[in-house]
């Protein structure tokens, strides 16, 4: 029986900076995960639709536009609305500490800032998903 971690990786909203998200997507692939890359300029609705159809364990969103306080809660709300509150929503980008804390309080997972080693992201996802599947 085969059960790789499936991750939807993408960018939401009007933000065309995709170098970082591609580096992360490649790192997760190299860690043995199945990475669904959604591409740029996704709507939260689009992301959640893909997350459901692909039955992912993780939705990882990159936001560098400053719209994180709108987009993360919206995605969370849509996932919950579809009964997929078990999906780990996490991400990265330029996100101030205060906002980060607030988002984590809402139920968003880790948000990684610039300069984070990809090994740290991989280790976080592996640990988090193992714990969730173990339940």
């Amino acid at each position: 029986m085969d059960n790789p971690i499936r991750v939807l990786v993408g960018k939401v909203g009007l933000d065309g900076h995709d170098r970082g998200v591609k580096v992360v997507a490649s790192a997760l692939r190299d860690a043995g995960m199945e990475v669904i890359y959604s591409g740029l300029h996704q709507t939260p609705e689009n992301v959640v639709r893909a997350a459901i159809e692909e039955d992912v364990d993780v939705v990882a969103i990159s936001i560098l536009s400053g719209a994180h306080m709108t987009l993360f809660p919206r995605i969370l709300e849509l996932l919950n609305g579809k009964g997929r509150d078990d999906v780990l929503l996490c991400g990265g980008g330029i996100i101030p500490e205060k906002d980060r804390e607030e988002l984590m309080k809402l139920g968003v997972g880790n948000l990684f800032g610039p300069g984070t080693p990809t090994t740290e992201i991989v280790a976080y996802l592996e640990k988090e998903i193992a714990a969730r599947r173990g339940k």
Partner: peptide
């Protein structure tokens, strides 16, 4: 395709 080395994959058709 899956990687024959790590078994990871990048599924990009949704783009």
């Amino acid at each position: 395709p899956s990687s024959p080395f790590t078994r990871g994959a990048l599924l990009g058709d949704r783009v």
